[in-house]
């Protein structure tokens, strides 16, 4: 297990001055593993993701990615090392076509990781293939979600952070998204996703962490979470 650990986070503290948002957050993600980060809105899930890729004001602690310390690197360096980030609000480039959006994400192939091409991504998300020349701004929410994931995959990451991939999507689209995530997992990608939709998280995740007020309150397998009604009631309360 430990040999396959891709991302190892220890004692992560993050601040939006002057407020501290994260307190000693620690977790791991292995290759080919889907890990869910659960918790209420404001619990610190998005901040955790932004901390990992260097998009918050100040962070302290250890973030080891493929054995290397990345907590002092600028955002673009982190991405170039193969840590892909899909933001919660999709953030596709509305003026750019699907093809151009993918081009922005393109990075050179990396050893030992799947190399993605636009053609391979169109197989993963057939909807996108039909709209290569369409500007991102003229796509539906579900299509944009597919595009933003594809765009990150163009960087040939070995681990992907998915921030709330189901937010605001129709149930039917969420099911498609679950399929795609399982396919990515089959390619050997490690996936860390934050979710509010527990049903969706259950469908695809191997393990889960629960974040509450910036601290990790639970860690375990999905089966353990299923069994632990007290934890679910206390922190998720569905």
């Amino acid at each position: 297990m430990s040999a396959a650990i891709k991302l190892d986070v220890g004692k992560l503290n993050s601040f939006y001055s002057p407020a501290q948002i994260l307190f000693d957050v620690g977790f791991t993600v292995g290759s080919g593993e889907v890990v869910a980060l659960l918790g209420r809105n404001g619990a610190g899930k998005s901040t955790t993701f932004k901390s990992l890729v260097g998009l918050v004001g100040r962070r302290e602690g250890e973030i080891r990615f493929e054995g290397e310390e990345i907590s002092r690197l600028p955002t673009y360096e982190i991405a170039r090392r193969g840590l892909g980030y899909v933001p919660e609000d999709r953030r596709v480039f509305g003026e750019l076509t699907v093809e151009e959006n993918l081009e922005v994400g393109r990075q050179p192939p990396r050893d030992g990781v799947t190399t993605w091409t636009p053609e391979r991504l169109y197989e993963l998300f057939p909807n996108l293939a039909e709209m290569r020349k369409r500007p991102g701004g003229q796509m539906s929410g579900g299509e944009q979600q597919m595009l933003t994931i594809s765009r990150t995959l163009m960087g040939n990451p070995s681990l992907v952070l998915l921030d709330e991939p189901s937010e605001g999507l129709a149930p039917k689209i969420i099911e498609q998204m679950a399929d795609a995530i399982l396919k990515m997992k089959k390619e050997g990608l490690g996936i860390l996703l934050s979710e509010q939709n527990l049903h969706f998280a259950r469908l695809i995740s191997d393990r889960a962490y629960i974040l509450e007020k910036g601290r990790i309150r639970f860690s375990g397998t999905i089966a353990e979470l299923e069994a632990n009604e007290a934890v679910r009631n206390q922190y998720l309360a569905v």
Partner: peptide, 15 residues
């Protein structure tokens, strides 16, 4: 053109 829309996102994609 991408940076014109969203600079942070461009950085998060390795630029």
């Amino acid at each position: 053109r991408a940076a014109t829309e969203d600079r942070d996102m461009v950085a998060a994609l390795g630029v």
